[in-house]
Nucleic acid binder design. Structure first.
Lengths: 217, 217
DNA sequence: GATAAATTAAGTCAGGTGATTGACTTAGAG
DNA sequence: CTCTAAGTCAATCACCTGACTTAATTTATC
């Protein structure tokens, strides 16, 4: 079982080809604007049904792309999490939240398409659920939430949930913006993914620690 | 010429019917997942080409929807702007930025679809440009930017641009989240649009005033 | 009232879509 | 070497799409 057979190598190469082609087309033209046929062709598969064979429906393909990246993001997050264990500094936990995704994008090299893909999927009424399922299963994310809770014990639960959503939106869409700018050769506010993560971290820390104006409840 | 003729009334009623139906379908099922045919039918037009007749392509329809709301948002913004003129309190300018959209959604009554529509359009690679064109032409937005600049003169231009983007994403996507929750009868962190705007304002103020960690530039 | 123009209705068209099918190719077990 | 099963290819299906054409309806103006 140790050595993959030639056959298995080829199949997994084909799958990878499809995943990469789909990710690029989805990011550039829109997930729903691209047909499975176009993906198959872009992946060099003469078969117009290659996507259907290997993945099933388009939602399944989207899930496969998300999962592929999530694995790598998760491992980066686990590494950062090890360094933050026990910390009472909000910044440490925010870094665990912010850096994994951007660091992953940096590792992918240029150009990337994953951030734009994520931004689309997360705003689509039907695909959104897929993304939530794939990302919320992460146990390390739960640890980060708990770490932040310990740093900010007096923050109301509602506000905590609200600001968690905000952080998620900020990370995903700012990464997508930067990715788009890189693809278009448009100037970016930050020179590198690492610097972008720093700028994002500054803001997310401020966000979590912001005073809460009481509302007429 | 003063009184609208019966004919003009009917036409504009039909256009409004189409705009409303499109907005709802787009928000619920996705802009690209809904065909012009389905919009025409949902608007009660026997003609499957009603959208084409009144608006042209789907991009034109999207633009018309955006513009319709933008007019109202703009008037609310102008009102708030009058009260903030000359202020050196970041909060005043942030309110000018945050409240108009959410207040507009509150005025629309329940249910609304505009926020989800915006979130989708702003993340789509081809429709995004339409939204930018429609919203960035607002002169009042420029005034808010200048007001914030006067409050935060030492903030680097790059960081200013970066945080402007962040505020935009936060407003649009948090509004969409809340709208979705209301539509699904899911609990929301805030009881009203006004309270949601307060929570958003707390965060956006903290964001603009957050210290900037120097990067190795 | 009659007429011309604009709106709505209804039908048609070529093209693209997902899904299914069967034939062909190839790796690996007996 | 042969056989089997998985992967690939190519063709086909019914369906939906946007665009177009034609007819019916309605209204403003003469």
């Amino acid at each position: 079982m140790a050595g993959r057979t030639v056959r298995e190598e080829q199949v997994s190469a084909t799958r990878e080809l499809i995943l990469t082609a789909a990710e690029r087309l989805f990011a550039e033209r829109g997930v729903l604007a691209v047909s499975n046929r176009q993906v198959s062709e872009a992946a060099g598969q003469g078969n117009n049904a290659a996507v259907g064979y290997h993945f099933g429906t388009k939602a399944d393909l989207v899930r496969a792309i998300a999962r592929k990246h999530q694995v790598r993001v998760e491992s980066i997050r686990a590494r950062l999490l090890a360094g933050a264990r026990g910390s009472t500094d909000v910044r440490d936990w925010v870094d665990c939240l912010v850096r994994p995704v951007l660091e992953h994008l940096a590792e992918l090299g240029s150009p990337t398409w994953f951030a734009r893909f994520c931004a689309q999927v997360m705003t689509d009424p039907v695909l959104q659920q897929i993304m939530v399922e794939e990302s919320m299963t992460s146990p390390s994310l739960q640890q980060i939430v708990e770490g932040l809770n310990r740093c900010l014990p007096e923050l109301p639960a509602d506000v905590r949930a609200e600001r968690g959503e905000m952080a998620r939106h900020l990370i995903v869409h700012m990464a997508a913006d930067r990715e788009r700018a890189l693809a278009d050769n448009t100037p970016t506010p930050r020179a590198s993914w690492h610097d972008a993560a720093t700028g994002l971290g500054d803001v997310v820390v401020a966000m979590w620690t912001a005073p809460v104006t009481p509302t007429g409840a």
